[in-house]
């Protein structure tokens, strides 16, 4: 390896290691008792983690995060699969790419702006409920009732990220040898049979990618729960990321670091296998 090539990579390696430093810093301070009350932290081992287990907010917010991610993975996959199938069987390529753009544009808009618009749409008097009443459909209370608050958040996140899943399923479908589909048509298979017997079994890659990215993207969203809830203390919408931000603003630094470390660990558990056994392997196969 020549030195010049290494030099060219130095900036990226520098910033990557800085990230590693930040992660390790969190890990280190999560073993201390640093807070507003203890400005001179001392090493306390797992005590901070143990204290978290007794905090109701911690487990509620973590379960919200996991529920949100799992929900996004499940519904995002279902919708993405549905959309991808609808678009795949569309004969017209131009129409397909127009519809594709119209279904994935939410990915390009800031989640903060999205959340603001949805706040209005969730207004129980003049929001989408106005339309639902016109159509004689049931009208949920959305953000105005504790029982529908979290599902409302889910609606926003799934609306924003279903396109992600759509893209990967569509890409996987397009990668399936076209003559397989033609052979199946000649063999009198209807579109549903082609979808479930030919397209899907040969598109497992799309499923893995879509699930991994839906999980990672929804696990780290901040502005929708933060903005839809009106503040970090709303227990019904608090996710781990929001909770950590709350601990930081109230200066429970060690606890915030511990929560940050847990979040990082969960994300890492998905990222590393995905990077090494997914992306890296596909790169080699090119």
């Amino acid at each position: 390896m020549r030195i010049q090539g290494l030099l060219m990579a130095i900036p990226t390696i520098f910033f990557s290691f800085l990230l590693l430093y930040l992660v390790i810093w969190n890990l280190y301070f999560s073993f201390t008792n640093w807070s507003l009350l203890n400005p001179h932290p001392s090493f306390v081992g797992f005590q901070t983690y143990a204290s978290l287990l007794y905090m109701e907010y911690f487990s509620i917010s973590l379960s919200h995060s996991i529920l949100l991610s799992v929900g996004t993975v499940v519904f995002g996959n279902l919708l993405g699969l549905l959309f991808a199938s609808l678009l795949y069987f569309l004969g017209n390529e131009k129409m397909r790419s127009i519809y594709l753009s119209l279904l994935i544009y939410p990915l390009s808009i800031s989640m903060a702006a999205n959340s603001l618009i949805w706040l209005w749409l969730f207004n129980i008097h003049i929001g989408i409920n106005w339309l639902l009443r016109l159509l004689h459909l049931p009208v949920p209370l959305w953000l105005s009732s504790p029982s529908t608050e979290f599902p409302s958040l889910m609606v926003v996140v799934i609306w924003a990220y279903a396109g992600l899943s759509l893209i990967f399923y569509l890409a996987a479908f397009m990668g399936v040898d076209k003559s397989l589909i033609e052979a199946a048509r000649i063999d009198r298979a209807n579109p549903l049979r082609i979808l479930f017997r030919v397209l899907l079994p040969n598109s497992m890659n799309g499923f893995i990618v879509s699930s991994a990215l839906l999980f990672l993207f929804s696990f780290r969203i901040f502005s929708p729960p933060y903005l839809l809830s009106g503040g970090p203390t709303n227990i019904f919408l608090q996710t781990s990321v929001v909770y950590m931000y709350y601990l930081f603003t109230t200066e429970y630094f060690a606890q915030a670091s511990a929560v940050a470390t847990i979040i990082t660990a969960i994300a890492t558990a998905v990222v590393i296998p995905y990077a090494l056994y997914g992306i890296k392997r596909w790169m080699k196969h090119e």
Binding site: D177, E182, A183, I186, N202
Partner: peptide, 15 residues
């Protein structure tokens, strides 16, 4: 699907 055709593709197109 209604032409009752049997076809062997160049790449076989086996599932």
């Amino acid at each position: 699907e209604d032409r009752n055709i049997g076809m062997v593709f160049q790449t076989w197109a086996l599932y």
